[in-house]
Nucleic acid binder design. Structure first.
Ligand SMILES: NC(=O)c1ccc[n+]([C@@H]2O[C@H](COP(=O)([O-])OP(=O)(O)OC[C@H]3O[C@@H](n4cnc5c(N)ncnc54)[C@H](O)[C@@H]3O)[C@@H](O)[C@H]2O)c1
Ligand SMILES: NC(=O)c1ccc[n+]([C@@H]2O[C@H](COP(=O)([O-])OP(=O)(O)OC[C@H]3O[C@@H](n4cnc5c(N)ncnc54)[C@H](O)[C@@H]3O)[C@@H](O)[C@H]2O)c1
Lengths: 220, 220
DNA sequence: AGGCGCTTGTGAACACCGGCACAAAGTCGC
DNA sequence: GCGACTTTGTGCCGGTGTTCACAAGCGCCT
């Protein structure tokens, strides 16, 4: 039998989804001069339970000190490394409409380690113009670039989103963040995450209605 | 004394999160003149497995016809009812910066049954101006309104998000959609959902790195 | 040095969720 | 009217995620 020399730590998806939150809180603490934090305090600040937090962190290794807590700088580095933020990551925003403009002006990309390198649109009136001190290029221009480490953000109308996805997948992109309210079909090995505003609102509406029904149940 | 601390949930959260997708697909089908759809076709269009789709729909009741499929209009109505979209829902957008402008101009609210009724900012230079044919009001103005059926979208910088949340919770709002990258603390009974761009990108970065590691393992 | 108090890391139990496979239940053709 | 065909609704199971509870480990104080 093959000896499993590298105990490949498979980190659960649910944990991966929380690591960015921990990282953000840790960097805030670091900026405030805090150098050690307990799981209880960190969990409070991250809005999770301490037991869950400790289990999440245990997937990264044993970076805590019993009786003391976690070294803030060390833990932040470990999470950043695990998330793949040690190497440079680039972002291309496709679709320079209302949303694309807001995204292009958003400073949160740079502060989290993502460089917005390309702004893309296919409207001839927009291509070549400057947005947020950056030149807008055509989609054909983007597809000639190196896809390594590139994340494509789709902010086109839903009818064009699949075409854009097909084009960037063909160039080798394997990470897509989709703002268009539609289902994207991509080959295996390509990861799509979606941000759907209407879905979020409808989930909120559901819970609000359920809350009201619960009240009626007790107080008819 | 206090019994049943865990509220018996009729519909699982995972199902609720998918219902809006089904609803969107169903309305597209309806617009295309399709009046009956099988679980296989609907699942394909929604990007899920047919068995899972059928289980999701089974929580709403038995609205399908064996051997035939689901009546598109009927099913759309049932989902809309379950999501609480039969009663009017209103949205207030707080923070009229880059993102707030894009949201105010977004037509997707209205087409999904949400009326953007208030645009809010606390910058005196912005209050009173018109954005997307709507007048911007101060936060104090919003907090005097009826919170029933109101969903508050927070698009302020993170440092002000908690204050805004506190203010709208105090007026009785129980549903908040938070775009600011920070943890909001709210009382029980108030639901907060967050949209965090950097988190999404970092999750994508993690998977992209993991994919590359997997390749190295096979091809060093 | 050794005990004591604090916090981590984790075993175990439990709840949840997704997928398979199939019986039940309906339609359609004749 | 009836059998063949189609599709739904669900029992079941394995995998995932969450929580409790506590032993193990570390530093500090005496
Ligand atoms: N505006 C918002 O606040 C908001 C919020 C959530 C989701 N969305 C979604 O985001 C998407 C964009 O919204 P918007 O309001 O910015 O729309 P918009 O119409 O203002 O902008 C769309 C832009 O995409 C460009 N485009 C179209 N096809 C393209 C292609 N094939 N390649 C490159 N560029 C292309 C157009 O030229 C246009 O500039 C939509 O799908 C919308 O549903 C928007
Ligand atoms: N711009 C984007 O694409 C984007 C994307 C994701 C997340 N975000 C987040 O969304 C938030 C807004 O981003 P932005 O780029 O629009 O920022 P911005 O600075 O352009 O706008 C913030 C607005 O909020 C207003 N504001 C501040 N405090 C307020 C208060 N107490 N009550 C009411 N209004 C208040 C300000 O007057 C300003 O108009 C930020 O938290 C940002 O991190 C933005």
């Amino acid at each position: 039998m093959s000896t499993a020399p590298a105990p490949r730590r498979e980190i659960p998806d649910a944990t991966v989804a929380r690591l960015p939150v921990y990282l953000r809180v840790l960097r805030t603490l670091l900026a405030d001069g805090v150098d050690v934090v307990s799981s209880e305090e960190l969990a409070e600040a991250a809005g999770v339970r301490s037991a869950g937090l400790r289990r999440d962190l245990s997937y990264l290794g044993s970076y805590g000190v019993r009786g003391v807590g976690y070294d803030v700088a060390r833990l932040a580095d470990e999470i950043a490394r695990e998330l793949g933020l040690t190497q440079d990551r680039f972002v291309a925003i496709v679709g320079m409409g209302n949303l694309g403009h807001a995204l292009a002006a958003y400073s949160g990309f740079a502060t989290r380690g993502f460089e917005v390198r390309w702004l893309v649109d296919n409207d001839p009136a927009i291509v070549g113009t400057q947005i947020a001190e950056r030149c807008v290029v055509a989609l054909e221009e983007l597809t000639r670039q190196d896809p390594d480490g590139l994340i494509v953000v789709i902010a086109t109308p839903p009818a064009q989103a699949q075409d854009v996805a097909d084009a960037v997948v063909a160039m080798g992109v394997r990470s897509i963040l989709n703002f268009a309210p539609c289902v994207l079909t991509v080959p295996d090995g390509v990861e799509v995450r979606k941000v759907d505003l209407a879905t979020e609102l409808q989930i909120l509406a559901f819970h609000e209605q359920r809350g009201r029904d619960d009240l009626r149940e007790v107080n008819p």
